[in-house]
Design a protein around this nucleic acid. Structure first.
Lengths: 191, 191
DNA sequence: GTCTATACACCGATAGAC
DNA sequence: GTCTATCGGTGTATAGAC
């Protein structure tokens, strides 16, 4: 059998939107039904485990996309500076230039503790680790690379929250630009 | 009349805990009732507007506390460096060294848009503005001061989310320490 | 001011026809 | 695979006794 996966992919896209905008408790089956165009019973046909299974599927796919679109570019073979810039461009696109929120962040705040915790943990951790690896490769000492990578993820995630709170999305793109330049500062310095 | 405000203050403390931990939609009247020890009907005696009024009261008080405990120290008359360090100490305490979350951040993510938006906006904005003022006072050009202040708040808010997601709270205190040192870097440099 | 009891809407989830 | 109809449970909110 060769599977028609495409329609399910569309459903997951809409599910992701709803969970990102509304959080776990705010994402009611009624809203999900409206967003997907599927009745509640149809949703249970695709996800017998109900809302929990829907959220889990969305989180797993989100981590795959993080791997593809954000971490992947970091592990290419170009210059470290270029790879980091590429990651920032992809982030800008993925987060709608600051207008969209981060699923992992939203579920960290609204998710019933324990259900998705492991996936959230893995997602954030591998992201930080991959960024730190690039910084090490570029010549930074490991400890400094790790803290810089952590701080970068902190500020990106925080910017998504605060910019939304402020209704000012411009600062998100400014942050991405600055990070592109600052993450490797004092590395090219000769002797 | 001289008001016995104290018991209401206790109720607000418990309300704040519940909203910080559960978000707006997760904070059910049942949980609030358990946390405060008051029956639902009693809650409506104190807050006739229901859950919305409770959340609004909590947000307003949160902004007052932000003013007292975080922004206040910034406007003292000591050295800028010392004032910033004091703010970081108070933040560390207020956020339980990273174990607690930020009410403004949580409501930004879970709050039905528009209800608290103005209060959230004002809270974040005055915080950033006050921090930037100190940096200007310390000698930084205004534009640089503003972006540094924004970035600091971004990373603090993001750290509260990501550290919770990672289950690793140590990085939050590390961040506060680094910010204390880095916010004013290259300022004391003579000529 | 606090309680018990209750109203009514909406939630997640299922049954069963098509 | 999708639908309508419906279930039991829980959500917010009120009534009214004490």
């Amino acid at each position: 059998m060769r599977p028609p996966l495409v329609p399910k992919e569309d459903v997951l896209n809409e599910l992701t939107k709803v969970f990102r905008e509304s959080g776990l408790e705010g994402a009611t089956l009624t809203r999900i039904s409206r967003a997907t165009g599927l009745g509640k019973a149809s949703l249970y046909h695709h996800f017998p485990g109900g809302k929990q299974e829907m959220a889990l599927a969305v989180v797993k796919r989100s981590n795959l996309q993080l791997q593809e679109k954000v971490i992947g570019p970091l592990q290419g073979d170009g210059e470290p500076t270029a790879r980091i810039r590429q990651m920032m461009r992809n982030l800008d696109k993925y987060y709608g230039s600051g207008k969209e929120s981060c699923l992992l962040g939203v579920l960290t705040v609204t998710g019933s503790r324990g259900l998705f915790h492991e996936h959230i943990k893995v997602g954030f951790a591998t992201w930080i680790k991959s960024l730190a690896s690039v910084l090490v490769e570029a010549g930074l000492p490991k400890k400094l690379a790790t803290t810089r990578a952590e701080n970068a993820i902190f500020s990106i995630e925080g910017a998504l929250v605060v910019c939304r709170g402020l209704g000012n999305v411009a600062s998100f793109r400014r942050l991405l630009r600055e990070l592109s330049a600052d993450l490797l500062r004092e590395v090219e310095d000769p002797i």
